[in-house]
Design a protein around this nucleic acid. Structure first.
Lengths: 195, 195
DNA sequence: CCCAATTCTTAATCTACCTTAAGAGTTTAC
DNA sequence: GTAAACTCTTAAGGTAGATTAAGAATTGGG
């Protein structure tokens, strides 16, 4: 199991001793997804918290009119799950789908409860996770209200360097909140400006 | 001190015995604000979690271009504070200002820590607060991406019944993310439709 | 109570972004 | 390996909402 990356990721917020580290690793499950396969479908209960080892996921929802809105991408070293559904074990609002062949390491809700019980450090990890999610969401709201599509495209490129070449244009357009046609014309204008 | 309303509000999520209730009440501070007075200015540390007993507050931020964006109103029976600033004791992103003469009951950060220590129920109250804030924010993002200004106006009216007559049009416009001029023309169209 | 400042409305003009359509390029399925 | 199904681009025309400006209504300070 490819576990270097996830330990590195944990080390950014908490410190574990070798016994705790082994205990944590013993609770992980691996899963491989093919391009387009779903990790979670809206309406299901989100039973796992997943960490992307390789590949990329997209988190999105369908509005009542049936069009998709991408709210987040999760390439390597990102976590992806429906926080609300995982916490309350209620029906998920979001779907999570692989945009390329993807490998994840996941922790079930039951195992996370075990971890929280036995390794107090994970309380902190969890609290930070909620806080970070809230703050990130807040930033996105701010940015969306305050900036135009071309600025949001710049911000997307800064947040996910290199991802623009791995992801379908239509998904990027959806993330930015514009139509694929408009993104296309924005990209053309941007290219022309470099001459 | 007008404490009926706040006890009622707590009872919606947790149950306290008489001793705990008295302890909680002993930690509250009252404050009166005149119309236009600030409860919190962006940049300050948010030291209190405030509950509105009467009147109304607005939570807003100034974008780099200097224009105001209202993110939330807090009339009677609502809580208002900058969650991130209160939790981390960092500089606040939002300002909180009274839109009419307002009375609040507030709990300082230090007293909240005391409460969390002595009345375990408040852990739950706090967790629910975070969760609710996250979910509410998520809903707003969803709605803003998925609906037009006139639908958002309907949603505003449903969320804050009667508030449209107490709040300045320009603040409602800012909350909806449109200009006051556009809100004005929307209202006119809406009135004409009723004939 | 009055003058100044702020807020609200109306209307004309302007722009970012959408819609529709159609052709070219790329994947997928059998 | 080829047809079917997506995806991306270009372009024309349309619309929600911004901007500017100016007058009317309301509010506030002295």
């Amino acid at each position: 199991m490819q576990s270097q990356l996830i330990l590195q990721n944990l080390a950014e917020s908490i410190r574990l001793d070798p016994v705790e580290t082994d205990f944590f690793l013993s609770l992980l499950q691996g899963q491989k997804l093919r391009r387009r396969e779903y990790l979670l479908q809206a309406g299901e209960v989100c039973r796992y918290q997943s960490f992307v080892v390789s590949g990329c996921l997209k988190v999105s929802y369908l509005d009542p009119a049936g069009s998709e809105h991408v709210v987040k991408f999760a390439p390597e070293n990102w976590w992806a799950f429906d926080l609300e559904s995982f916490a309350l074990q209620s029906g998920a609002f979001y779907s999570i789908q692989a945009t390329e062949d993807t490998e994840v390491l996941k922790v079930s809700r039951a195992n996370m409860d075990l971890l929280l019980d036995r390794v107090p450090q994970f309380e902190k990890f969890n609290r930070l996770m909620y806080q970070t999610a809230y703050i990130a969401l807040q930033r996105r709201v701010t940015q969306n209200l305050a900036s135009k599509a071309d600025e949001r495209y710049q911000q997307f490129q800064a947040k996910y360097p290199g991802l623009q070449n791995r992801i379908a244009q239509k998904d990027i357009a959806s993330y930015l909140g514009v139509t694929p046609e408009f993104l296309s014309s924005m990209r053309r204008r941007e290219m022309l400006m470099h001459f």
